[in-house]
Design a protein around this nucleic acid. Structure first.
Length: 735
DNA sequence: AGCACGCCGACT
DNA sequence: GTCGGCGTGCTC
């Protein structure tokens, strides 16, 4: 009597390993494959897990194994590369296996219901297979026979292939060589070929053509290219051409974009090129829409998947290239749960699949630049703006001793007036929403603070509120000081709302559009406004970094950066690069069309060394010394960091827990350096006291060994009083 | 994460 | 005498 197989299943519970189960009752004839879902008993409830492995024995007490209740899938829903991606992510980020694997499923598949049966497959020869010379498969007669049959018939259902005695392995081998392809029968209407562009694409300049040539030569094997191109240099056109080539090989493309970078404009541009064969995935999709997009990619119907962070986990059976646009963007790092970097995991996935990956940015991250210098990535540059557009001219405007109105100097306001008078559009950038960041009493010095955070409340005059931007606590705007009863209350500083107010008074005849998360609540609102702006009437856009990403404003000739100074003196070692990136990205919104653009940066520190370097010598000259400083200080990418966070209601509990862990690590891992425990940058948030412990080593392996110790300790004994804790590998935040 | 088991206060 | 508070601990 043959023994039953053991199914190792990742379950949605905080467990670091899969659990072993027996197959369902009466499932003799059923095939079990990794990647299939399984409804299993877990404790007293039923959950949906994913089969990770079909094994022949168990280390667990075999007599106590429970049985799988149901296998709702006839075929795996997750392919091997996604399973491996989840497994690897769980390990690398020291997270729970179930969280990493089960969460890659769209929510609509986490209920264990039987889905409409996956459509039957049929096999087709590819154009490559059709054009193959007669002797090419001499050493693989089985494959040659199979290919002949496919060519004779055009398309053969998988069931019929089996009947004809063609082994599945033979077909898979043909697929691997790019000679044949399988697809759902219902979808075989229309070939998966490239849709002819509806209009002729723009001609490439020399740099673009060269980049494309290099990228094309990289198709078909792993390689990571950093594509550094100033804003407007035509990165997207290079992506589009590369994708066309990949699609022509019957492969799929995955494009990852930042959270706010996935704009209707971007979507339209891809749709214009690839027609209906794109699927878009972003956080705004409902469960049903997300499932549809996911299935389009998984079935091969969609040839190009464009999405934010989580789209990285889309199954794509014929994936041929990954593109990560704006690779420096912080939104690629998930900040809760499985704290993964979609950019870094994308590189891993590309290596798994042996396909090329392109990281694109006008302002590459120091990490990626360092990877180019060490030879792990290769670098391609697009130094010039495509077409006739000239780069914007950046000018620092010293506002010391000047009166500011709504944050803006008279000089700046006059420049705005000139541009409007000339029929142009103006963009005013200010990275702070609300009316003012501070609300204080001029008689007693009282200042409005959040009840639950160590943060000041922001004044919002339009809604008559004091509002905490960190926890959502809000109260009515007081008319008298809660401390002394005085009416001498002052709103200090400037946010977008106040600047908008000033601009409205000053430029009454012109449209002023405020663009921040307060006014642009829906995708639709933004889209409508963009359409309005694209009409080209002179107007002013005033807003936060929402303005800095994704959107092109061809009519804007002047970009005014009202206040960047906060970023100049931050304790965070990444503040400089973030500020530099923001400046370059915002500046890139101007002068995109034939009209030259100008950027004015107001500052109280016109002699600040790296600000000067950035403005006069450009981003690369600015970033090189930042990398040098990182090396000197032993910071990433020359060392590797992990951040342990603990949060507790009582400040001492988190502190003590991390102090204990520190002692443990000092004893067991003398090689790692440990900083802290120190209070987080904002020590109290939403009522919890947050403490950090930073662990550092110049090698990854010893760091991960130390983190294993941390996990074992925490798994064995949860420190008392700690409400939440997390391990963040390669954190963006640090001490 | 859920959910059960477990050991101490005010209720039909 | 029970209903129920959420502290601790496990899930193949």
């Amino acid at each position: 009597m043959p023994t039953e197989p053991i199914l190792r299943i990742a379950v949605p519970a905080p467990l670091r390993h899969a659990l072993d189960y027996l197959p369902p009752e009466n499932s003799r004839s059923q095939q079990f494959q990794p990647g299939m879902r399984a409804v299993v008993p877990l404790g007293s409830r039923r959950v949906v897990g994913v089969i990770m492995e079909v094994a022949s024995d168990t280390e667990f007490d075999a007599t106590k194994l429970k049985r799988v209740v149901d296998i709702p899938d006839a075929e795996p829903v997750l392919p091997p590369d996604i399973l491996q991606l989840g497994r690897w992510a769980a390990q690398y980020y020291h997270a729970m296996l179930g969280e990493a694997v089960v969460n890659t499923l769209p929510v609509a598949l986490r209920d264990g219901k039987h889905r409409n049966r996956v459509a039957a497959l049929e096999w087709q020869p590819t154009s490559l297979g059709a054009g193959l010379s007669g002797t090419a498969l001499n050493r693989a007669p089985q494959q040659a026979d199979a290919l002949r049959i496919l060519l004779a018939r055009g398309a053969v259902p998988a069931a019929e292939c089996r009947a004809l005695g063609i082994a599945n392995a033979t077909l898979k081998a043909l697929q691997h060589k790019g000679l044949a392809i399988s697809r759902p029968i219902e979808d075989s209407i229309g070939p998966p070929a490239v849709i002819a562009p509806s209009h002729s694409p723009p001609a490439l300049n020399d740099a673009q053509a060269h980049a494309l040539e290099v990228l094309e030569n990289g198709i078909g094997r792993f390689g990571c290219v950093l594509l550094e191109g100033v804003t407007g240099s035509g990165k997207t056109e290079v992506y589009l051409r590369l994708i066309e080539r990949v699609l022509a090989r019957q492969q799929q493309a995955l494009v990852l974009v930042p959270e706010i970078g996935l704009t209707p404009q971007t979507e339209r541009r891809f749709a214009a090129r690839f027609g209906e064969r794109i699927a878009v995935m972003h956080s705004g999709l409902g469960d049903a829409a997300r499932l549809r997009a996911w299935e389009h990619g998984a079935s091969g119907r969609a040839r190009v998947v464009i999405g934010t962070r989580s789209a990285l986990f889309s199954p794509l059976p014929e994936l041929g290239v990954i593109i990560v646009d704006e690779e420096h963007d912080a939104s690629f790092k998930q900040q809760e749960g499985l704290r993964y970097s979609a950019r870094d995991l994308a590189v891993y996935r590309a290596r798994l699949r042996d396909i090329p990956i392109v990281l694109g940015s006008a302002t590459p991250s120091p990490e990626s630049i360092a990877n180019c210098q060490s030879g792990r990535f290769s670098l391609l540059s697009l130094p010039e703006r495509a077409g006739t557009a000239k780069p914007p001219e950046v000018q620092l405007l010293d506002v010391r001793r000047l009166d500011l109105e709504g944050g803006m100097s008279e000089t700046l306001l006059q420049r705005i007036a000139e541009e409007l008078g000339a029929g142009n559009q103006v963009l005013v950038f200010l990275n702070r929403r609300g009316w003012a960041p501070l609300f204080t009493c001029s008689d007693c010095g009282w200042m409005a603070s959040c009840r639950d955070c160590d943060a000041r409340l922001t004044v919002h005059r339009d809604r008559e509120l004091l509002w905490c931007h960190h926890c959502d606590y809000r109260i009515r705007l007081p008319t008298a000081c809660p401390g002394c009863g005085s009416a001498s209350l002052l709103a200090l500083g400037t946010g977008t709302e106040r600047s908008e107010h000033t601009l409205q008074r000053r430029f009454a005849g012109y449209a002023i559009h405020r663009i921040d998360s307060g006014t642009m609540q829906t995708r639709n609102a933004m889209e409508k406004l963009i359409a309005e702006i694209e009409r080209g009437e002179p107007c002013i856009l005033v807003g936060t970094q929402m303005l800095a990403k994704g959107h092109h404003f061809p009519g804007v000739t002047l970009v005014a950066i009202v206040d960047l100074d906060a970023g100049l003196f931050s304790a965070d070692y990444r503040a400089a690069e973030r500020t530099g990136q923001l400046l370059v990205q915002v500046a890139g919104r101007a002068g995109r069309a034939d009209r030259p653009g100008q950027v004015i940066v107001q500052t109280l520190h016109p002699t600040h060394p790296w600000l000067l370097r950035l403005v006069h010598s450009g981003y690369r000259a600015f970033i090189d010394p930042i990398l040098d400083a990182r090396k000197l200080r032993g910071l990433p990418p020359h060392a590797h960091l992990a951040l342990l966070r603990a949060e507790s209601r009582n400040p001492d509990d988190a502190q003590r827990a991390l102090q204990d862990l520190k002692q443990l690590l000092l004893a067991r891992h003398p090689g790692v350096s440990i900083l802290g425990p120190v209070p987080a940058a904002m020590p109290r948030r939403a009522g919890l006291h947050r403490v950090h412990l930073l662990i550092k080593h110049h090698m990854r392996a010893p760091l991960h060994a130390a983190l294993d110790t941390v996990c074992r300790s925490l798994d064995a004994q949860r420190p008392p009083g700690v409400d939440r804790w997390s391990i963040d590998v390669d954190p963006l935040e640090s001490a």
